[in-house]
């Protein structure tokens, strides 16, 4: 069991390191799937089989599928990878990497000095988790339902494909710049009054 833990945590760390250093989004996503599967193995070795299954199904399944669909829809290709390569120079990543390394050392020192006892493995069964969820955490479950509902509605609203959705103040500004007239601002004060027909159409879309 302990070999399983060490092996899978090594895989998880290496795969995550590969995720944050890849240039191409699809490569990063595939390494992220590997990392999630390795974390699922860690959960299994910690005696949490229910969460391990959920990690595979929801994280490595559903969420990664969302990411991959979006990458496919955005049609990111070699140019994006090239741009990433230009962005990710040592000058950019050395500073943050050093700072987070210091944080990691601090956490490591705290954990080593804490002298915590060994973990006694006892499998927490799905039955216990379900009883806890629908017992003491019932309100939190309902709130999570609200959150998911808000997420669905928000995603459907934001993801709507509009032709152009500049905010009206920004559009006004660009119009004013083009006409180089400063007093175009006071036209759009009312609720849709005095707005040209073309703009009102784009609003209603």
């Amino acid at each position: 069991m302990s070999t399983l833990f060490y092996l899978s945590s090594l895989v998880a760390i290496v795969a995550t390191l590969m995720v944050i250093t890849r240039y191409h989004p699809i490569h990063a996503l595939l390494y992220l799937v590997v990392s999630f599967l390795a974390v699922a193995m860690i959960f299994l070795s910690l005696g949490a089989p229910f969460v391990a299954v959920l990690e595979v199904i929801i994280y490595a399944g559903a969420i990664m599928v969302l990411f991959i669909f979006v990458v496919m829809m955005l049609n990111l290709d070699k140019d994006t990878a090239l741009q990433e390569k230009q962005w990710l120079r040592p000058r950019v990543w050395v500073g943050p990497a050093l700072l987070t390394l210091v944080l990691l050392l601090e956490i490591g020192v705290l954990l080593v000095r804490g002298d915590l006892p060994a973990l006694q493995l006892a499998v927490v069964t799905p039955r216990q988790v379900a009883l806890s969820l629908y017992g003491e955490y019932l309100i939190a479950v309902e709130l999570a339902g609200f959150l998911l509902m808000a997420g669905i509605v928000g995603a459907a609203h934001i993801g709507k494909h509009k032709k152009e959705s500049l905010h009206r103040f920004l559009r006004e500004e660009t119009d004013a710049h083009e006409a180089s007239a400063g007093d175009a601002r006071e036209v759009h004060t009312g609720d849709g009054e005095g707005i040209p027909e073309k703009e009102r159409k784009t609003w209603q879309l």
């Binding site: 833990f5 995550t16 990392s35 860690i42 956490i107 954990l111 060994a118 973990l119």
Partner: peptide, 23 residues
């Protein structure tokens, strides 16, 4: 049966978290 120290697990979690932060 003792498996691993809890600090090892927390250390792995910390490493993963800080890798994400670096990203």
């Amino acid at each position: 049966m003792a498996v691993v120290n809890i600090d090892r697990v927390l250390f792995v979690a910390a490493v993963l978290f800080l890798l994400g932060l670096t990203g």
